[in-house]
Amino acid sequence: MSDTILDIRELSVGYGRKGLALDSVSFSIPRHAIVGLLGANGAGKTTLIRSITGLLKINGGHVVSGSVAFDGQPVLGLPAHKRVGLGLAQSPEGRMVFSRMTVEENLMVGAAMLPRSRQDEGLSSIYRFFPRLKERHRQIAGLLSGGEQQMLALGRALISRPKLLLVDELSLGLAPILVNEIYGELGRIARSLGTTMLVVEQNAHVALKYVDTIHVLDRGSIGYSGTAEEAAGSEAMKRAYLGEGQKEGAA
């Protein structure tokens, strides 16, 4: 078993006949790390996530060149559900819960790939991490608050015990105190389950507090890579990206 869980090599992606949304992006994620992917709106973060999860095609995009390997296996040719089956889960941007179903039903969709004997165990572990979900387990998900929906989307992704969890724009539209609370919980989950996480954030200041290393996407290419400490200390990095990230995050 190699130390790399996700390896992206010279990945280029386009939508229709427009120019490239991603231009030869390469980076890898070590096992058990928490990696941040930062960048302004339109920098290509969502495109990168879609390429990794397999939701690119239904959003009108296509891979032009390059490769993505998950746990040593090339995944670009696999449909989305097969990638989830390999242990590559995601909590999508905008939370996307099943709004007409109950909290528990939402979680059971995520647990559906587990053997029946492990489903209850999965459910109770999610309720341990997010007690709010247990309190509301019979409520219709569409009626939850934004923070609770975010917890639900995370719980739905985590219940199958993925090897890698992609967290897309967790902070979007949530109060800062709630964002900190949820990121704190995610860190505890990562440590207790050994889950590797790729955290996509527009709000760089929040992300730098919780990740080990960061990659910054800038107009479709990696513009900066380094540890969170280096990034926080780097004047060049701050000037180039964080100022922008902060404005976007506060907006």
Binding site: I58, H81, V84, A89, P92, M96, F98, A157
Partner: peptide, 11 residues
């Protein structure tokens, strides 16, 4: 309920 979310959840 939600096509894309179902795909993301492994359905």
């Amino acid at each position: 309920d939600r096509h894309e979310a179902a795909m993301a959840a492994g359905v």
